[in-house]
Simulated assay, not measured.
Amino acid sequence: MSTATTSAPATATDPATTPSTRGLVEITKVRKSFGATEVLKGVSLTVEPGGVAVIVGPSGSGKSTLLRTINHLEKVDGGFISIDGNLVGYEVRGNRLHELRGKEILKQRTEIGMVFQNFNLFPHLTALENVSEAPVVAQGRSKDEARRRGLELLDRVGLKDRADAYPRQLSGGQQQRVAIARALALDPKILLFDEPTSALDPELVNEVLDVIRELAKSGTTLIIVTHEMGFARDVADTVVFMDQGQIVEQGSPEHIFTNPQEPRTRSFFSKVLEPAFNI
C-alpha cells in the first residue's frame, strides 16, 4: 500500500468528533500531479449534506480530476478528502495516511455514485440488468429485490418501458439516464457527475438535465462538473469556478454569475455567457 505525503488529520476518523450527517464532503488542501504537471494545487472545498455544488471553468482547469479524487479514482499526492468525517481511500496509522486495500476502497465507493461522460454501461446487459447488477454483487441484495428497486429507478428517470432494451437500442440521452439510475441503485450518500451531457447531441441534453434537476431536490449531495451555465445557475446552491488547478472563486449562483469579484472569473464568464444571461 502507498503512503500519502500529508500528515494525517487529527480528527478525521474519530467518531466522537463527527456530527451526525449524511453526505458531508470535506476536501482539504488536495494536490495532484501527472508527471511534472501539477493539476490540483492545494484545493479545499466543503459541500454540506444535501448541497448541490456545480464546478465550472475552462478545459484543463482540474475540474474532472478533482471529481475523480472524491471517490479515489485518482489518488491524491497531498491533502485529504473525507465524507461524513471518514477519510476516502486512506486510513490513519500513527501520524501518516496509508492507502486502504482494494476491497475497502470498493466498499467506500458504494456510497459515492458517479455518472461519467460516456455512460459506461455494460453492452451485454439490458437497462434493468445494468441498474440491478451492482446491488447484488456489491451489497448482497437478492436478485428479486434488486430488480424491484431497478424498475423503480428506471421509472424515476422515465425509462421503465425500456427496461429490457440493450444500450445499443437506446439513444445517448436514454443511456445516460440509465447510468444515473445505476448510480442511484446503491443508495449513495453522494452523486458525482462528470460533464454528464458533453457526449450528447444538443436535442438530448435537456432530458438528462431535467433528471438531475429532480435529483437536486431529493436531499442527496450532488457535485457536478458541467459546461452548461444556465443549468448551473438553475440547480446549484454553490458554484465553484476553477482555473489552473485552483478554486478562484465560489459562491451562490447570483454572486458568481452576476457579481464575480475576481478578474479571472469575470473574464471567463464574459466569454461563455450569452449577453442577455448576465443581467
Score class of each variant (00 low, 15 high):
R93Y: 02
V131E: 05
L128A: 08
N130L: 02
E74M: 12
G51C: 02
V115L: 07
Y166A: 08
P167W: 05
P49T: 01
H72C: 10
Q117K: 06
S171F: 09
S59R: 06
R101S: 12
E74F: 14
G62F: 11
H98D: 05
Q139L: 15
G94W: 00
P167T: 03
L128Y: 06
I70Q: 06
L87P: 11
V76T: 15
Q108W: 08
S64L: 12
A165W: 11
K107C: 09
P167G: 01
I70E: 02
D155Q: 15
Y90R: 06
I83K: 02
L125H: 05
K63E: 11
V157I: 12
D164H: 15
L45R: 01
L125I: 03
T110D: 09
L159C: 02
V43C: 00
K103D: 15
D84G: 04
S142E: 02
F122Q: 05
V115D: 07
V136D: 00
S64P: 14
G173I: 06
L73C: 03
V88S: 05
D164Q: 10
G94P: 04
E152W: 14
K75T: 14
L45H: 00
L154M: 14
G50I: 05
L73I: 12
P58M: 03
G158N: 07
I112A: 06
G85S: 08
G62N: 13
G158T: 08
I55E: 04
Q175E: 08
Q176W: 08
G113F: 09
E145M: 09
L67W: 10
V137N: 01
V52H: 03
N118S: 11
G140H: 09
A127P: 14
A146H: 11
D84C: 03
D144A: 10
A134P: 15
Y166K: 09
L45G: 00
V88N: 02
S132C: 12
E99N: 06
L73D: 03
P58H: 02
V136H: 05
Y166P: 11
E133Y: 13
K143V: 06
S142Y: 13
V54L: 00
T110P: 14
I105S: 08
V56D: 07
S59E: 07
V136F: 03
R168N: 11
I112T: 05
D161T: 12
G172H: 06
G172K: 03
L125Y: 09
L170M: 15
G113Y: 10
Q174I: 14
K41G: 00
L153W: 01
R147D: 00
G60E: 12
S64I: 15
I81Q: 01
S61E: 13
L151P: 15
N130Q: 02
L40A: 09
L170P: 15
D161W: 14
I112E: 04
P167R: 03
G51F: 03
I55K: 01
G85M: 07
K75G: 05
H98W: 01
R96D: 11
F116P: 03
V131P: 12
D77R: 10
A138N: 15
K75Y: 09
D84S: 02
P58W: 02
R101F: 09
K103W: 12
P123Q: 07
S64W: 12
V88R: 03
P135N: 02
D164R: 14
N118E: 08
L159W: 05
I81K: 00
S132E: 04
N86H: 10
V54T: 09
E91H: 10
G140I: 11
R109G: 13
E129R: 14
G158K: 07
K160C: 07
